[in-house]
C-alpha cells in the first residue's frame, strides 16, 4: 500500500523525476506531432493489427466516423497524459490511462512469433518491445510517486490533508 510518507534518497528521487519527465515528454510530443501532421491517421496502424484486438481495429477502420473519433481521442489522450505527467497534475489517473493506452498499442501489434507487419517496427523485438516497457514504466511511476511534492498535485493534496 502506498502512503504519502515515502522517502527516497536524492539519487532515487532524481532518477524517478527524470523518468517521469522523459516519459511525459515522449508521450506529449507523440501527441503534438500528430496534431502538426494533418496526414496522420491511425488507419495504417490499425489496419496492421493482428492479435487479439484485430477484430475491433478492423471495425474501427471500416467506419470513417469512428476512425475520426478514435484518432481525435488518441491524439488528445496522448497530449493530456504527457503534459500531466510532466506537470505532476492528476498524476495517478494520468499515468494509469497512459499505461493502458500504451498497452493497447502493444496488444494491437505485439512482436510475437509468427506475426509479421508491413510497417517497419522500431528496433529488433521479440515479445518485448519499447511500447510494453514504457507501459510498465508508467505503472512503476504510479508505485513510486513524486507528484505530491514535485507536481501540481501538491496544491490539491495539501488542501485535502489540511481539511
Amino acid at each position: 500500500m502506498i502512503k504519502q510518507n515515502i522517502s527516497y534518497t536524492k539519487s532515487q528521487l532524481c532518477v524517478l523525476l527524470a523518468l517521469r519527465f522523459l516519459v511525459g515528454w515522449h508521450i506529449l510530443y507523440e501527441g503534438i506531432s500528430k496534431v502538426l501532421n494533418p496526414q496522420w491517421s491511425s488507419y495504417s496502424f490499425l489496419n496492421e493489427s493482428q492479435w487479439i484486438l484485430s477484430g475491433i481495429s478492423k471495425w474501427i477502420i471500416s467506419n470513417p466516423n469512428i476512425l475520426m473519433l478514435v484518432d481525435a481521442v488518441n491524439i488528445w489522450t496522448l497530449i493530456l497524459v504527457g503534459a500531466f505527467l510532466i506537470l505532476g497534475f492528476l498524476f495517478k489517473p494520468s499515468a494509469i490511462i497512459g499505461s493502458l493506452l500504451l498497452l493497447t498499442y502493444y496488444l494491437n501489434a505485439p512482436p510475437l512469433l509468427g506475426l509479421e507487419y508491413s510497417i517497419p517496427m522500431d528496433g529488433s523485438n521479440l515479445i518485448v518491445n519499447k511500447t510494453l516497457i514504457e507501459s510498465v514504466v508508467l505503472v512503476l511511476l504510479v508505485l513510486f510517486p513524486t507528484n505530491k511534492v514535485f507536481g501540481i498535485d501538491y496544491f490539491i493534496f495539501r488542501k485535502t490533508v489540511k481539511d
Binding site: 522517502s7 527516497y8 515528454w25 506537470l87 505532476g88 511534492v149 501538491y154 496544491f155 495539501r158 489540511k162
Partner: peptide, 28 residues
C-alpha cells in the same frame, strides 16, 4: 534522504521552496 513526508502537506501556508518544487515540471 528526501522525505516526501516532510513536505508540509498539511501546513497552512505554502513556502516558496515547496511552491518551486511543486512547479518542477513547468520548466520541463
Amino acid at each position: 534522504d528526501v522525505s516526501l513526508d516532510d513536505m508540509n502537506l498539511g501546513s497552512k501556508s505554502i513556502s516558496r521552496r515547496n511552491m518551486l518544487k511543486a512547479l518542477a515540471g513547468v520548466p520541463v
